[in-house]
Simulated scan of single mutants.
Amino acid sequence: MTASDRDPRDTFDTADSDADIGQQAAAWWARLRSDDFTQADADALRAWCARSPAHARAWRELKQVWQALDPALQEAAPQRAAVLAFPLRPGRRAFLGGALAAGVAVLALRPPLGAWPSLQELSADYRTGTGEQRQVALSQQMTVQMNTQTRINVRAPEAIELLDGEAEIFASGARQPVTVVAGAGRLLAQSARFNVRHTDDAVCVTCLAGAVEVHWQQRRQTLDAGQQLVYDERSVQAATAAPAEEASAWRTGALSFVGRPLADVVDEINRYRPGRVVLRNAELGRRLVRMRFSIGQIDGALAMIRDLYGAQMTSLPGGIVLLS
């Protein structure tokens, strides 16, 4: 039985070894990912972390050890390493235990709750972490402002592929149009500023200045300033008026939502905040809200949700918050 197979609510001996405690911490991570995680589970996890300093440390290190792995993963990513191993300092006991070490390859591809970068993230030419923003000048004609949790590959000095995330593109009078490939579409612009958001399977393109040509299969649409459209693998929508300031609000250090489901707000909070906010009330998630808050004070948004919309908040170790 591996750590992911074990039910962390099982009773453990108080004399558990460090390796056993590490396996239990890994089992709790797996339990948190399940659809039937309950308030009783949350209380049990708190009790488990409080059982001893070793338990609290194992939970903390489950996140920290992978963050420390980041340089090693970056080195391994270009070779698309299938199996990774990490060294422990001499004489130091392995809190994560043998079961977690055996599952390293899987966890590197699909990290639980986004606790560390996946191999896919690390293999991109440029990427940003949670809450990070970055500007990349690819040429005199093309500059890319990357938002949080964004990955891009460079195809040419004036052509990129947005693998996922969000970026604002500045095209300044190039002889040939700059090109952005995102999902099933291709965007071309010669003198323009536009925002591209590629999350899940959908791509949203918003023209902020100038004009952008959107190529989707055999169809072409031109977006003028103030227009946006959404497409995915199956269809492309007609251009519509872009919500005022919403698409580029992140560039000013704020997030703005007008008439959006609360579930969308929670999804966006998770892009900027370490840990994970889990919305466990479907009715609450469907509620349309109007909110604006600072990216630098993202936890204040959770307090707003609690105070304005009556959500119950349960805070767990590792930055995990349950909303119900």
Rank of each mutant, 00 (worst) to 15 (best):
R155N: 11
A115N: 12
R151L: 09
L107A: 11
V136M: 01
L122P: 15
L119P: 15
W116T: 06
V154T: 11
T150Y: 03
W116R: 03
A124S: 13
I152E: 01
D125V: 04
N153I: 02
L138M: 14
R93K: 13
G98H: 13
R151D: 15
E121L: 04
G103K: 09
D125C: 10
L100R: 14
R92M: 13
G103A: 13
Q135A: 14
G91K: 06
T130A: 02
R134I: 02
T150E: 05
Q135I: 05
Q140F: 04
R134M: 04
R151K: 12
E121D: 09
Q120W: 14
R92C: 14
I152C: 00
L138W: 15
T128F: 01
W116S: 06
F95H: 04
A101H: 07
G114W: 00
W116N: 06
E132L: 03
A99V: 03
L100S: 12
L113I: 08
R134Q: 08
Q145V: 03
T150D: 07
I152G: 12
L100D: 13
R134E: 02
P157M: 03
T148C: 05
N153K: 02
S118D: 13
A137W: 02
N153L: 01
N147E: 02
P117Q: 07
T150S: 11
S118M: 10
P117D: 09
R92D: 15
R110N: 09
R127L: 08
S123C: 10
S123M: 08
P157W: 00
A99D: 13
R151F: 00
Q120M: 12
V136E: 07
A94W: 12
G97D: 06
A115F: 12
S139H: 11
Q120R: 15
G114R: 00
L138F: 15
V136A: 08
I152M: 11
A99S: 14
E132T: 03
G98P: 13
G114T: 06
R127Q: 10
T143Y: 01
G131V: 12
V104S: 13
A124N: 11
A94K: 10
F95R: 04
R151I: 00
